[in-house]
Amino acid sequence: MSDMMDDMEGGEGVVKKFMFVNRKAPHGTIYALEGLEVVLVSAAFDQDVSMVFVDDGVYELIKGMNTKGIEVKDFSKTYRALDGYDIEKLYVEQSSMDARGLTEADLIVDVTVLDSAEMASLMAEQDVVISY
């Protein structure tokens, strides 16, 4: 991180609610990785950040990936670093999990599971929603 950004920390800035919505499977396209990198950068600005996983986005959090065969970075491990970046609000949509035969036990990080109505109201209370 640049020194300039370190200096900005602790300043009396405005805190807004940012939601990053992940809707794409990992590896097949670059969206999931790019979205994660933006979240890591956003952590430096001390905003109220939440990450949401709906539709194929829930596939980003699957345990036990092995990407050696397709020669790409296994960034699923990086979701476990989010806690250290003080990004602790991770949400997944129940129906997206159900449609893919997944349960919380299949995921690499702790998440809060919301039904679609709860997800909708969480989305509605944000200041900024950025979608991938």
């Binding site: 499977a25 990992p26 397709i70 449609a99």
Partner: peptide, 28 residues
Amino acid sequence: GGTAAANIQAAMADLQIYALGPDLDARG
């Protein structure tokens, strides 16, 4: 467990279904 599974199972009556192993591994 996914919604596509039933379609795949039905299709296997007439079609040979293959999947690429390294892509399955990469996705856990």
